[in-house]
Nucleic acid binder design. Structure first.
Lengths: 208, 208, 208, 208
DNA sequence: TATGAATGAGACTTCATTCAT
DNA sequence: GATGAATGAAGTCTCATTCAT
């Protein structure tokens, strides 16, 4: 039922290398994710998370210094996964495909990711509200990656340009795929299409 | 039966018609906005709001049924203002200006609005996380308006198309101008420019 | 059963002027005193104090910002009472009585005070350990008073001398009367006698 | 029946005869002393002590049954040292020196001891508050020793007298030298002088 | 014997909301 | 209507101690 979470433990008090601990941490993370999605971060108590995860509250606090660290770890896990996906686009073949295909691939990838991670929305809403810096840093990593991918396409722009373009691209696709989550299947489909159009026309204006 | 508060409206318990009450409500709203921005919604107590606004806590609860109603009222106020701005664009002259100018005007308008309302960001982060429906409803109003404006430009599209286009437009501009808030002045400028380009190229692909 | 405590409210969140509040504060103070004596400060919980005093825990925290404030208020109450006693010794007649009688009066006064306030010991042990400054300040007040009383007896010493003498006097009497509390009645009697002898011989060495 | 720990003795679970164990116990004691002084007994956790002493927490509990035992062992160590000092005064020569010199020697000895053991103050504040009996017992040992030293000086008093005198003497010197710890160097000097005067005049009234 | 992860009772404190005055 | 003292459920987190390995 719960998606196995293989988050990179950050702000984790103790890096659990033992099998049982690792399992516990993941159980906590999975339960927390689910509860954050269902009732919101504030309305979810550490006690409830521990109980649901069948972990003593004391153990929970052995792995996470406080409630926020759970949220943060969750966020970082998502970020890492998403980042990995984008990095996987950085292949020789990708530099050859058409701009339209490139945009399609990215958009579809993000769309899929969001679909498969129902917690992302809830978690990032909170994260953005309470730890914007962390979040920014994570997105920046993504933007950076894209910014280095772009120059492989023709026109000679400077680094600043590439950064701005990557920023718009990442945020536009991210935001709309995110927004599409709450929409009806039909409109969602449409949104994917429009997002591709939006992004493609934008990029085409640069990469003639 | 008793004092049913019309859920959609400003959830104010009593619409204060007396001068003093109105002033108090405004003071509460102003103080709350400031505190939400400074310390976040959760960390702001109703008692503190009341104290700062020099309004007895009991009176505060006479105007607002609960803490969330304050946030909601704030959000609605913003929404109304922004909505008014967009409505003001619906004039005969506006239908005549170029697409590029149209996009410019909208983007600049939103940018200005966000600049002048520093609370918007903080408030909406919370609102989106805890009352997405309200927010959606508000944006929908905006999108609807834009959707009715668009057909005044050439190509014969159906209502669904106009809705989708308006959605993308409103959300894209809204989102990027919002994101620009936290950026350095330079990058912020750039973001305005890129947002215009993004939106313009998108619209142009429809209204060539 | 409980001694009525008329402590000067310090570090009290709200100075309770209303009859009911005042009674509640006193009930809290009385209960706390008793529990501190019986089980020690650390082992006494705010919840238990509130329950025993039949005051909701929330109300307790309306009067006292935290657990320590209760202890502090208790300490200050004692200090004030003891101080009052010493001030009452500053009368024209007192300046006339013999040194021996003077020492007797002081010692007996302190002895009585300690006997009548069984909480003093427990409370001050804690206070001294966790808020030495407060305690010092209080004793200093006492010492100051004595230091201004002494010059009324012959020999011309400087202010520093009077301070030192008063310090020794106050601390010696205070300490031994305090120590006597835990002793058998017989030895306690003896201790009173010896304390008088100790103090008297010391003072006599100055005031020939 | 199993491992009954003789309550009066150093409440160490196991008297560590092995070199490594002894070293560990000492390291625990040293670290604990320092931490008690710095942060207070309550604020010092057994885990922190163990970590700082580089001893596994499990081992710590092998040497000490509980946290309080560490404090107690520390207190007993001090007491023993101080006791040794006083015993060293019980020599033929000491019986010959003047009363004034005798008092000087004792006072200076105690003063030095306190100066060299900064932990004494902090530790005893706690000990007195939570284990007064232990403390009393320790001082009693001291008083007894003094009481047997005193008769070597003239006047024929009974055992009870000697005990009372020794009690006053030990406690007066002890208390004032203790109080002097927190004072300014100047006043501290003065306090030493006054303590000698206090004690000397008292003793002289008996051994004139 | 040595280790340190695991435990969970319970401590302190907060704060939205009510309702007697 | 206006006021603000009163309420107490509930939250987060700590830490002495144990015991399986």
């Amino acid at each position: 039922m719960a998606e196995s979470s293989s988050q990179s433990a950050a702000r984790t008090r103790r890096k659990p290398t033992q099998a049982r601990s690792l399992e516990r941490v993941n159980r906590i993370l999975d339960v927390a994710e689910q509860m954050f999605v269902e009732k919101g971060y504030a309305a979810t108590t550490t006690k409830a998370i521990a109980a649901q995860a069948k972990v003593p509250i004391g153990s929970l606090y052995q792995f996470f210094p406080d409630k926020e660290a759970i949220l943060q770890t969750l966020a970082e896990g998502y970020s890492d996964e998403l980042f990995s996906y984008f990095q996987s686009l950085d292949t020789p073949e990708m530099a050859e495909i058409s701009l339209a295909d490139y945009v399609d691939k990215m958009t579809d990838g993000v769309e899929q990711f969001f679909s498969q991670h129902p917690g992302y929305y809830a978690v990032f809403m909170e994260v953005q509200a309470r730890m914007p810096l962390v979040n920014e840093a994570d997105d920046a990593r993504l933007i950076q990656t894209i910014a280095t991918l772009l120059p492989k396409r023709n026109p000679p722009l400077n680094a600043q340009d590439y950064h701005a373009i990557a920023f718009i691209m990442v945020k536009a696709i991210g935001n709309f795929m995110w927004l599409s989550l709450g929409q009806s299947p039909d409109f969602r489909q449409r949104l994917v299409k429009e997002t591709k159009r939006l992004t493609f026309n934008y990029l085409q204006s640069y990469f003639s």
